[in-house]
Design a protein around this nucleic acid. Sequence first.
DNA 1: ACCTGAACACCGTTCAAGT
DNA 2: ACCTGAACACCGTTCAAGT
Lengths: 203, 203
Amino acid sequence: VRTAGRILEEEGLEAVSMRRLSGELGAGTMTLYGHFRDKDELLDAIVDARAGAAPPPRLRGDWTQRLRQIFGHLHRNLSEHPGLVELRIRRPIATPGAFVITELGMRTLRDAGFPPAEAARAFRTLFVFTFGAAAFSPPGRAPQARSTVLAAVGALAPEEYPTLAAMGTELADSLDPRGEFETGLEHILDGLKAALAREAWAR
Amino acid sequence: VRTAGRILEEEGLEAVSMRRLSGELGAGTMTLYGHFRDKDELLDAIVDARAGAAPPPRLRGDWTQRLRQIFGHLHRNLSEHPGLVELRIRRPIATPGAFVITELGMRTLRDAGFPPAEAARAFRTLFVFTFGAAAFSPPGRAPQARSTVLAAVGALAPEEYPTLAAMGTELADSLDPRGEFETGLEHILDGLKAALAREAWAR
DNA sequence: ACCTGAACACCGTTCAAGT
DNA sequence: ACCTGAACACCGTTCAAGT
């Protein structure tokens, strides 16, 4: 599992094959099937092992600051390992390691005053956004994405795309992975604060 | 491209192979390479052809209602075609068809009072969240995801996961794709409303 | 009981030969 | 000029044989 995780991080998901892995370990390909029923089980084991790998920081401050720490940590982890993101989108995992972040986030939201169902919804919003940001804007692709969008917007017909034609640079700048994640997180936190101030269950 | 798109929608990305496609078309596999340099070029052609396929609805109401219509439309489209989501995450596109939604969203945000840079950030937050929701919670996977999470949370050690152990059903319920998208969208819209009410540039 | 080579049914793509 | 079969270097997995 450790070797497979290394291949995934260094060379991406497509490089992780049963034959490649067994070769690297100096064993026959079929030996792997004594430890995992099939490749999916191996991939699950990689994700599980990596999910609890970097423990989240000790939480400090009020609930919004804690959520910034939890999801900032998750986003940093995911951004550093794009292969893991692809894997977790294709095969969501439900192993104990994957729930460490969930437990922390849910505890923070419950303590902030969100009832169980509302806390679960709020967590899910933050979780899906964080994964979306990591999947859609891996840091390695950022420079290329910027220039691609800049060129594409420049080539649009101004009559059909009047708004975009006037703001190509702002659009390209919004693709910066860190800024994209951080402003999005603030938008969601603003929304959660508003819900907490508005809803009857919070009183 | 049409046939490849049909295979993608009916059987998923893994079913789209050069050999399978050429077989379906009654041609030699290598004939495809007269039309596309390689498989990536074929995949790009599929995404481009599908991007502008379903035109967004005419927009009505205030800016929050319009954003609900724009991103609800996008989310519905993506949810119906999970293969396309996987493809667009792996290879973001910048063809004119892909910018129709961007133009509509950006115009709505500019009209609401967001300056160019803030409008771009806000759009990006909504866009990334919508894609994340579609990628992470394709409707077809929902029933299975629900029971998997329910079982997994039930098996967690209550001493290590005290919060989750007490709210398994709420967590499982939060995976419902429509509900997940809609509450997340409301959270973000709440946040954007708060920013509009708070920031100096809005006055 | 444990390990694994051969085989099967697939891939994308290059190369050379066919019409 | 256009099309394509054979070949190459890969896959995951089954099955049967090896120790």
